[in-house]
Design a protein around this nucleic acid. Sequence first.
DNA 1: ACCTGAACACCGTTCAAGT
DNA 2: ACCTGAACACCGTTCAAGT
Lengths: 174, 174
Amino acid sequence: MRVDARRNRDRLVAAATAVIAEQGPAASLNEIAQQAGVGAGTLYRHFPTRESLLLEVFTTRIETLCARAHELAESRSPSDALTAWLEAFLQHCRTDRGLAETIMKAPSGSDLNCAVKLRTAGAGLVARAQEAGVVRAGVEVEDILQLTIGIALAADSPARAERLLSIAIVGLRG
Amino acid sequence: MRVDARRNRDRLVAAATAVIAEQGPAASLNEIAQQAGVGAGTLYRHFPTRESLLLEVFTTRIETLCARAHELAESRSPSDALTAWLEAFLQHCRTDRGLAETIMKAPSGSDLNCAVKLRTAGAGLVARAQEAGVVRAGVEVEDILQLTIGIALAADSPARAERLLSIAIVGLRG
DNA sequence: ACCTGAACACCGTTCAAGT
DNA sequence: ACCTGAACACCGTTCAAGT
């Protein structure tokens, strides 16, 4: 990769992070390119779809969540660890609607590994919770993630989101 | 209301129904106006926001759901009635993403009475279910509707949606 | 190889001009 | 009173032309 290409890519991600934080995940791609000091075509070469750009922007946040999963697995009971992690995930999805929507729409066989990482991190917590009998057998990580994302998208207030998540968690026990 | 105004309004709703069925709730308003044989300005006079047009289009469907609530309340047990109604609601939201999103975004104090009607119809079923001990006290209709809408929005397949709803219903019992 | 930026076909929304 | 439709400022996306 040529040095100027690398530099342009970095600038695009930085600009996208700033603009998306302001305008949300539907932010204008032209504006992102302009703010990065780059032609529109360059943005499209580096990121052929909007989703690919969004996933790049969210990578840091997703990695934070994965790290949190490992911390919780070591420091808390199976039940507490899963609950705390889902609450953290819910917060992220709510402060960043783009995160929720992007993960939701990412095809399950996606080669974009950050969504995969998230599923893997969650799977550990879920398995522990199932062994402890807090989550009934047959429930998949994917079920739990989608349920949490749905709550993040549909809840009309933070308090409601918390409440719906706790209802969902009770439901997981069977 | 002048007769031509009335006629234009009807044509707009008919055109919107057709176009939205094809293109989803983000369908082009210009195209709807054009297909209705009407100027763009006329659409805006009758429906100042996209949401107001969407709610008009969905009114029929929402009334169907309300009627179903009353039928179920008379013919089934409290538990079955609520479950069956939520399944019907889930189906509607999934076949018509616009329905889910529109209801979700409709301000709770909205004067658009179709969303209110839906809440009222649901409230009867929820109250019965609570008396029967199938839904724990403290849960609001609004909680249940938002949870179901969230599931409709986030689930990646019909089978998943069904599964998530049944998890949620278990959670409602407390 | 990589980048630029004008060009294209759209979008929502407004508003002077018509009837 | 109500409607029309051209006009405006956008949008995503492409692609010839440049370095």
